[in-house]
Design a protein around this nucleic acid. Structure first.
Lengths: 198, 198
DNA sequence: AGAGATATAGACCAAATGGTCTTTAAATCA
DNA sequence: TGATTTAAAGACCATTTGGTCTATATCTCT
């Protein structure tokens, strides 16, 4: 195959996606106008449309990126080679951190997108439903390993507890969007986990 | 004071607010266009603007209505004259119901608004922050009464448990927006409450 | 009947929307 | 140098946005 001839692509598409992600994250899909995206990505209209097709496709790329980051983080926190209870503690601590202080007000792109688009956008719905399933499965897995190691309190079912933990952290992100708390949240997270472990 | 003379107001403003609420609820604030509201309220542009000022004010009215309904429901479920544990069970059952089957996909106007507007709209933020505070306080109150009656498990702090329960139900509404579940959710709610009561 | 108040329908508006296209400058190769 | 490819700038487009205003019909009172 012959080498490409002319001027080489001079911008980093992945970096542009990341910047676009930031805008969607802080404003939501509908409230993000094209000029916002152009400013953030430092791309011209032409380049943006040539590279990503349209606003919706770019949004999907940004959402995928956000989800991939979240899954990566989870894979580290809940790594099967670590102590499962430590992993769960780290997982919860991450959410406490992300919902405290200035971070808290940022909110979560997945939740915002769920509420704004999931009901009417099949592409979005697929991605998010699968993300929540993955998350719940990872947590359930850690809980199962904890149970096998005799670390769980009597009568705790990993599947139920996983759903509880996932709902708890997602709920945290919602209520801390209006009023980030910090210490109370940390105490609640500790109290919740303490109910499950021995 | 003299009686009003001319043609009397012929539409029910509160009913219009309720219909508008339905539209905002299912589409979100930005995705709701004026024609949507006109269709739903069956009002003309002129009447709608005369009665409510503008889109934002109408939205605030709808949000207030939604919150008032939620608080009313809570006051019934967590009525201090009832057994507190029964009340908490009813409270959770309400959320299980609202996140199951077809209801689930409807989602929650408060959460959607939190994610879409709370960060940039002070009027909205105030209302929602206060709502979450009220909700948490009511649940904490029920838990305190349960504790006084010796119905709580050892070492359960009502304030922590209240935050946990509130986050759980709000998280439920988020994850069930993409995939309403039902039975699993009911089991999780039962399992969670069982961890707190004796 | 007539005065007074209100509703509707819809024309109208400026601004903003997402999206296309053309022109021009720049960068790389042969 | 000249061919080729790309990016940026911004003109341009139809449509939609939230919002105003006027004309007309309708209703209730005196």
């Amino acid at each position: 195959m012959p080498l490409p001839r002319g001027r080489p692509r001079s911008f980093d598409a992945e970096a542009a996606v990341e910047r676009a992600m930031g805008v969607f994250w802080s404003r939501g899909y509908h409230a993000t106008a094209l000029p916002d995206l152009l400013r953030a990505t430092k791309l011209s209209r032409g380049s943006l449309y040539a590279a990503f097709g349209d606003k919706h496709s770019l949004f999907l790329r940004a959402l995928d990126r956000y989800i991939a980051d979240a899954v990566t983080r989870m894979d580290i926190e809940l790594d099967p080679r670590k102590e499962p209870v430590d992993g769960l503690r780290a997982y919860l601590a991450g959410y406490v951190d992300r919902t405290s202080g200035a971070h808290g007000r940022l909110g979560c792109l997945v939740i915002a997108t769920t509420m704004e688009l999931a009901g009417r956008d099949a592409d979005v719905n697929r991605r998010i439903a699968s993300f929540f399933k993955v998350m719940e499965a990872r947590v359930a897995d850690a809980l199962s390993r904890a149970k096998a190691a005799g670390k769980l309190a009597d009568g705790v079912d990993p599947a139920n507890a996983a759903r509880i933990l996932v709902c708890f952290v997602e709920g945290l992100r919602v209520i801390s969007k209006t009023a980030p708390t910090g210490t109370i949240t940390q105490a609640a997270a500790d109290a919740l986990l303490d109910r499950f472990i021995r």
